Simulated scan of single mutants.
Amino acid sequence: MKKYMLTSVLFTGTVVFVYNAEGWLVGFDNSAEFSDDQHLWLIKNLPLKLGVIEPWSKKIKGTLKEVPMDLSFDVFWETYGKKINRLRTEPLYKKLDDTAKALAIMRVKPYQTYCKNNNRGIADPEKYLRNGYYDTDWSKER
């Protein structure tokens, strides 16, 4: 998941864009002060793919900054939601490199959706990490 913050001389405030691992826009937060025309332009011209956001930001005289992802254990713990065996889970999480931590967080929701759609129980977070369930792209599993 990648997050970018946009500022510009053309408006006050910021716009934040969030992209998933495949580079698709999955969310944005508009806390900028826009005119009606600017709002309409933004909605009609949203940078839907990560590859177009930088050239897009130059069109509007914007400054684009990547916001680092929070890879803390607490973020993983809250995202996973099944709060069992924290004392055994936290050391497993801390041993992961940053790429694995990002995957572990980003793939929680697709994993839980997969389990729900297939009438399966969700593994304890310790098992999710120990067995590398985060290495599977659950959005492509049936």
Rank of each mutant, 00 (worst) to 15 (best):
P125T: 05
Y133D: 11
S139K: 14
Q112S: 08
W56T: 05
L10V: 02
D36S: 10
M5N: 06
Y4I: 07
Y134F: 15
R130A: 14
T113M: 11
N30Q: 13
W56F: 10
K49V: 04
M1G: 07
S35I: 03
M1V: 02
Y134S: 07
I84Y: 14
T113L: 10
P91F: 14
G62H: 13
I105K: 03
K94V: 04
Y80K: 05
D37T: 07
V15Q: 05
R120H: 13
S139I: 04
R130H: 11
F76N: 03
Y93M: 06
V75C: 02
I53P: 03
N117A: 11
M5Q: 15
K65Q: 14
E22T: 01
F28L: 14
K127F: 12
K140G: 00
D70W: 12
F17S: 05
K61H: 12
I43Y: 10
S57H: 09
Q112W: 08
K94R: 08
N20M: 03
N30V: 04
G81Y: 09
N45S: 08
I60F: 13
M69Y: 12
K83E: 11
T63D: 05
M106R: 01
M1H: 12
K49H: 10
D137N: 15
S72C: 06
P91W: 13
A104T: 08
E54G: 00
Y80S: 00
N45R: 05
D135G: 14
Y134T: 06
D36H: 06
N30F: 11
L48N: 09
L6F: 00
W41M: 04
T12E: 15
S57L: 01
D124M: 11
Y4C: 07
Y114K: 02
S31H: 11
K83A: 03
A123M: 03
Q38K: 11
V9F: 07
T12V: 06
L71C: 09
W41A: 05
L6I: 09
P91Y: 12
K101P: 01
D74E: 15
L71I: 08
L87K: 15
E22R: 02
F76K: 00
W24T: 00
G81A: 08
F34L: 05
R130T: 07
N118K: 03
L87W: 12
G27M: 04
K44V: 03
W56E: 07
G27P: 01
S139N: 06
A104E: 01
S139H: 09
E126Y: 14
P47M: 01
M106A: 15
S72W: 13
L42D: 10
T136R: 07
D29W: 04
G51I: 05
G121T: 14
L48T: 08
T7K: 11
F73T: 12
L46E: 03
P91D: 09
T14D: 11
D124A: 15
V75G: 05
K44Y: 12
G62F: 12
D98I: 01
I84D: 14
E22W: 00
W56V: 01
E33A: 07
A21R: 08
W24H: 08
D70N: 15
R86L: 11
K95V: 03
S31L: 09
S31Q: 15
P55Y: 14
T7Q: 00
L40F: 11
D98K: 13
V18A: 10
E126K: 10
V18C: 10
K95Q: 15
Q38A: 14
F11N: 04
F73Q: 07
Y133F: 15
M69D: 08
L92I: 02
L129Q: 04
G132C: 04
I122K: 14
C115P: 02
P125H: 11
Q38F: 11
E66Y: 06
